[in-house]
Amino acid sequence: MATEKHYSEMNENELRSEIGVLMEKARKAEQMGMISEYAVHQRKAVLVQSYLVDPETIVPGEIYRIEGDTGVFFQVDYLKGLFAWGYRLGGEKAIEALPLAMLKDVKSGK
């Protein structure tokens, strides 16, 4: 039996391959109407994508767009692992953590 690698041990090509596998599983689950399974694969893919994000590009105190949540912005307070902790602007200012891959730079439009 082959032992599975942790995502933290994978190189960029292996991570990209895993993202492709997860997105394909999500697509199939969606086609079969298994919405909760679709959501699990989508979230897992976002976490794997976070391993490809350089944490140095996420600056505490800065504001970022949230991928998949049009018109919503997130102010980062601090980073811990693959997550940025902060709060959504215009909301209740409840602290929450978002995977790094969900944050997109407002200034460059990326």
Rank of each mutant, 00 (worst) to 15 (best):
M1Q: 09
A2D: 15
A2E: 12
E4H: 12
K5H: 05
K5V: 08
E9W: 10
N13H: 14
N13F: 12
N13E: 13
L15P: 02
L15V: 07
S17H: 13
S17R: 12
S17P: 02
G20Y: 03
L22P: 13
K25I: 07
R27Y: 15
K28G: 08
E30K: 11
M32S: 12
M34Y: 15
S36T: 13
S36A: 08
H41C: 13
R43T: 01
R43D: 06
A45M: 07
V46F: 10
V46E: 14
L47F: 14
Q49C: 08
V53L: 05
E56V: 06
E56S: 10
P60K: 00
G61F: 01
G61N: 02
E62L: 03
E62N: 05
Y64E: 06
Y64D: 05
Y64A: 00
R65N: 15
I66L: 09
I66V: 13
G68S: 10
D69L: 11
G71C: 06
V72E: 11
F73K: 11
Q75P: 09
D77M: 08
Y78D: 05
L79D: 02
G81I: 08
L82E: 04
A84L: 07
W85G: 09
Y87P: 14
R88L: 06
L89A: 12
E92G: 14
I95F: 10
A97N: 04
L98T: 01
L98R: 13
P99Y: 03
P99C: 00
L100H: 04
A101T: 06
L103R: 02
V106G: 04
V106R: 07
K107H: 11
S108F: 03
G109F: 04
